[in-house]
Design a protein around this nucleic acid. Structure first.
Length: 268
DNA sequence: TTCCAGGCGTATC
DNA sequence: GATACGCATGGA
């Protein structure tokens, strides 16, 4: 990976990455765009690790970050080693995907922390994105950053009541209990197939097919996961009544995210 | 006031 | 296995 250092910034050139499209397309909930002298600047977290990152054209600027953290943490997080150009070329065989990719060519699938993704998408069910962000922000205020599930062992209805998460609180508590008891091992899922991982995660109350697929895609980078929410359900009905196009095979999750962002922005 | 939001658990057939 | 319904909360 080529980059150069200027003061406290590490700068790299990267096509196929648009911060706004990637960080604000509904896969992550803890990034906020802030005013700056750059075209875009976002501040956010991976777990408890903060980052401020900017973009001007194809220049990505990591602020106040060490080279070690860039290589060990953020390059993976932003999936910088994956060739999205090749992926998009394949996807463009399909007219609907071609249009979605032209609309937002800078979406990438982040590699988020599995437990952060699991908690976040349990909260996401039957909920809207601004409110999901609010609940997660309040969770992070309680724990001084996004908690490891092991840190939540003492939590109960009362300690989580400030979240105002509604009926999802009991699902969070079941998740905490099962992970901390070892009944669910989040590490073991890396080695599972899509269907194995999905069935395994669905042991947790509040984790159904859709949430499981989101966790597998955004937390474990299982790119063949294709989470079907209310929006993608409309996509399938309108665009793909006879099945998904063959050109997305193996990377259904990335295709899903281009389609999700497009349809939410433009309608079916 | 009613409807909806990156769904899921439960009951019922 | 399919379908209907309730669910906490808050914004439109």
């Amino acid at each position: 990976m080529e980059y150069f250092i200027k003061g406290n910034d590490i700068i790299l050139k990267r096509e196929d990455l648009d911060l706004r499209q990637t960080l604000d397309c509904g896969q992550a909930f803890r990034w906020e765009e802030i005013p700056s002298a750059y075209e875009q600047t976002f501040t956010g977290y991976r777990g408890k690790m903060p980052l401020t990152v900017s973009q001007d054209h194809d220049r990505i600027i990591f602020h106040d970050t060490s080279e070690d953290d860039l290589r060990d943490i953020w390059a993976g997080y932003f999936d910088l080693e994956t060739d999205y150009s090749a992926l998009k070329e394949r996807f463009s065989e399909d007219e609907h995907l071609k249009r979605a990719i032209e609309f937002a060519p800078g979406i990438r699938i982040l590699r988020q922390l599995p437990e952060e993704t699991l908690i976040s998408f349990i909260i996401s069910q039957n909920n809207n994105i601004p409110r999901i962000k609010g609940i997660i922000n309040r969770l992070c205020e309680i724990y001084g950053g996004f908690p490891e599930i092991s840190e939540m062992g003492e939590s109960d209805e009362d300690t989580l009541s400030p979240l105002r998460a509604g009926f999802r609180t009991k699902y969070l508590l079941d998740c905490v209990q099962k992970v901390n008891s070892g009944e669910v091992s989040t590490d073991s899922i890396y080695d599972m197939s899509l269907e194995e991982g999905s069935e395994y995660l669905k042991q947790i109350k509040g984790v159904g097919e859709k949430v499981a697929k989101c966790v597998l895609l955004f937390g474990y980078h299982k790119m063949d996961a294709y989470p079907i929410d209310v929006w993608i359900k409309r996509v399938n009905e309108q665009y793909y009544p006879h099945g998904l196009p063959g050109c997305i095979k193996g990377f259904e999750g990335a295709a899903q995210q281009y389609l999700f962002y497009y349809i939410r922005s433009n309608g079916v």
